[in-house]
């Protein structure tokens, strides 16, 4: 039985997402436990120049699936492309980032290959020859160790949970032969906010809740600016129409695990905590000393956020020089 780990690299507009390097590094560690090696595959159009970068993180072989039909991700086209490659490589494990596209792709592949799938894993290991993934359930209120049976086992890995390790031995780059079949869905438009740090990948997140009192988020944005942070919102702030739904952190929003999470004017309802309690360091700024978020925070300032935020922004600016 081969013990290949196949990592699906994710690039957007010609740039790899950071999670790709996290997954590759985790893949190498897993391959070590399985006694196998790591191959990577990157899909897109006109992306040959990108491939070599994956060798820096231990991919022994890098497959390039280059086709105009793969320029934009659709579940259908990417599943068709990968199913063919998986048939040739026969990997024991397929790893990918638990991004919007990674979750969708993992699900469709699991059905195509009749394979076990663990979505959004925060930990990965091998027990008695079987892959065991640790994944949050009930919005992170519980962690489950799940055993994946059969081959391949598919695991999508939550961004910001795996250490990136560079590894020498740049792999051979190979062009993959593709059969894409009939494609029915297509991407007909896209809009990106330039320079916006995405919540799920950000190293720091500053969230404004109902305590913001309105749609003016400039105090939160200024702090986020000095921290290089993404801006989040509680559901109440979204329901008020102050922020878009895509900014919502929580059990029915995004789950984030940044190094630093700053909650401003957020009470800390159980649904909100579900989305951010795996952050490494939590700071709460709230005028109510009894707010539940205070009890969950590593550091808390009790005070009016409109006074605290500008002061904190100044002090961090000073420290960062």
């Amino acid at each position: 039985m081969t013990q290949q780990v196949l990592v699906i690299a994710e690039q957007v507009e010609g740039v790899f997402r950071k999670v790709t390097f996290e997954v590759l590094s985790a893949g190498r560690r897993l391959a070590g436990q399985l006694g196998g090696s790591v191959q990577a595959v990157v899909l897109g159009s006109g992306i040959e120049g990108l491939a070599a970068e994956l060798g820096q993180y231990g991919a022994e072989k890098i497959l390039v699936a280059d086709d105009p039909a793969l320029a934009d991700f659709t579940t259908e086209a990417y599943t068709n492309a990968l199913a063919g490659l998986v048939g040739q490589i026969q990997p024991a494990v397929i790893l990918l980032g638990a991004t919007t596209q990674g979750k969708d792709l993992g699900a469709r592949l699991s059905a195509r290959l009749n394979a076990a799938l663990a979505t959004d894993a925060v930990g990965l290991g091998v027990d008695a020859g079987q892959v065991v993934a640790t994944r949050p359930m009930y919005g992170g209120k519980v962690l489950a160790d799940v055993v994946l049976t059969g081959m391949p086992a598919i695991v999508s890995v939550r961004p910001n949970t795996q250490a990136i390790e560079a590894a020498a031995g740049a792999g051979a780059v190979e062009k993959a032969a593709l059969t894409l079949g009939d494609l029915r869905s297509k991407v007909v438009g896209k809009q990106f906010e330039s320079g916006k740090v995405d919540l799920t990948e950000a190293d720091a997140v500053v969230t404004g809740g109902r305590g913001m009192g309105g749609a003016d988020y400039s105090a939160v944005e200024a702090l986020a600016g000095v921290l290089g942070a993404a801006v989040g919102a509680s559901r109440s702030a979204v329901d008020e129409g102050w922020r878009p739904a895509s900014d919502q952190v929580g059990q029915t929003g995004k789950t984030v695990s940044p190094n630093l999470y700053v909650a401003c004017g957020v009470s800390g309802a159980i649904q909100h905590l579900a989305g951010m309690s795996s952050s490494k360091v939590i700071v709460a700024i709230n005028k109510d000393p009894e707010a539940p978020i205070i009890a969950k925070a590593d550091y808390a300032i009790v005070g009016d956020l409109f006074e605290v935020l500008p002061a904190l922004t100044e002090e961090i600016k000073k420290i960062k020089g």
């Binding site: 992170g140 209120k141 962690l143 939590i282 009890a295 808390a300």
Partner: peptide, 17 residues
């Protein structure tokens, strides 16, 4: 194909400073 082996409570966050 996926079996839960064990459920664990996430590390409890202690109130900080």
């Amino acid at each position: 194909l996926v079996k839960v082996k064990a459920l664990k409570a996430p590390a409890e966050r202690k109130g900080g400073r």
